[in-house]
Design a protein around this nucleic acid. Structure first.
Lengths: 213, 213
DNA sequence: CTTGAAAAGCTAACTTACTTAGGTAATTCT
DNA sequence: AGAATTACCTAAGTAAGTTAGCTTTTCAAG
């Protein structure tokens, strides 16, 4: 497959015996082509324009935020998968199981209810639930009020598993969010709630822009 | 496949002509088994214990936070995929492309560098980069200082694509984070940065607990 | 009352975004 | 010089979804 060639600038560097490490060169009389290119390269255009999101005209902080969110969510996902593994489930199975348990406090839980709550398709939730049923953690019954509907309930075994997980989960969650003060926590809950809304608006705008164009 | 049966309590309800809707029943003389089960069901155990994360002894707010994060990140992912689609890429391809562009400002970019930055495996980044190379958006060359290493650069075409995307991206990003004041923004950056750290600690703790057990 | 549209759920086939395992070549450590 | 490590690659597999198309049930309108 497409053999990679050493770029000419690198060959030049090697030929002249210089080892140029980015930013650490002294007595550097000339720089490689790629080096020059990189330096003169215009900074990528800003990714936001609202002044509230810029610091000294730079979107650096904004990108830090986005990257941080990305990293944190990666950890969070891993933790979720770990919780799941403790009770022998895949990440999404655990999520659905616990969603059913929590939604049950507000009334009968349907497949579409879970799907909406988790913003996933009904078809997918159907599949996950079927796995949970075959594992004996969830029961399905027809809703007598609307025979199209299925009522999902967590079985005793399902509750046992969640209970078994709880102590570890608490410990880990305490650490995961351990850096938050009570005040920060409250503020964050509020901010995230608003971000959910504005995020949805942004999705709508994007869809509009994509098709309008 | 496993025929779903109407639960006995439901049959009883139907037989007696009563239609019980959760919480909205008047003149209700007896409730179904499932209804009773659900009500007497102990609340799922708390998922956190640190007092800073509890409000009136409940983890409700905490779960709201986690669920909010989940929802927001879903929107965020969708937006990212949308940005990518505008320039004919898959979400992850766009992410890798832009990561290379940004990392390039700090020195030569290697496959493993991108992998670390995005917390993904090197093998995966190799694949994505190969796709980007075949699309003509990224160039690979051997690093003359360490011939095991590959140096990734964004091609002119790659930069064109990113530039083309910028206006739309700005508009959408402005809306996505439009609910933040400058102060909230600064605070959030800080909090997320700390959460990244504590998240990693939590992952480590979880791993320890999982194997120690 | 019936008919037609909409809603709930299901299955099957597919896609995307990854990981693990195992290999080669270059480098570094001893 | 040999051993361990690092960087990258390929191939095969898995997890987490989605879309399309079907059946059954409900609901609304003629």
């Amino acid at each position: 497959m497409a053999r990679i060639r050493t770029s000419s600038s690198e060959q030049a560097r090697v030929a002249s015996g210089r080892r140029v490490r980015a930013g650490s060169s002294k007595a550097e009389t000339s720089i490689g082509r790629r080096e020059r290119e990189r330096r003169s390269e215009p900074l990528p255009s800003l990714t936001v324009s609202r002044p509230e999101l810029l610091t000294h005209g730079s979107d650096g902080e904004f990108r830090r935020l986005v990257h941080g969110l990305f990293s944190f969510m990666a950890s969070h996902e891993e933790i979720r998968a770990g919780h799941a593994r403790v009770i022998g489930l895949a990440g999404i199975e655990y999520t659905v199981l616990i969603s059913i348990a929590h939604l049950a406090q507000g009334g009968d839980v349907s497949v579409s209810g879970v799907a909406q709550h988790l913003r996933l398709t009904g078809a997918f939730i159907t599949n996950v639930c079927n796995r949970l049923v075959s594992l004996g953690l969830v029961d399905k019954s027809v809703d007598a009020n609307d025979r199209r509907r299925v009522v999902l309930t967590v079985t005793t075994e399902g509750r046992h598993r969640l209970a078994k997980l709880a102590p570890t989960q608490r410990q880990v969650n305490d650490v995961e969010f351990g850096c938050l003060s009570a005040k920060e926590f409250a503020g964050l809950v509020d901010i995230i709630e608003r971000l959910v809304e504005s995020g949805e608006k942004a999705v709508a705008l994007q869809r509009y822009l994509a098709q309008g164009k």
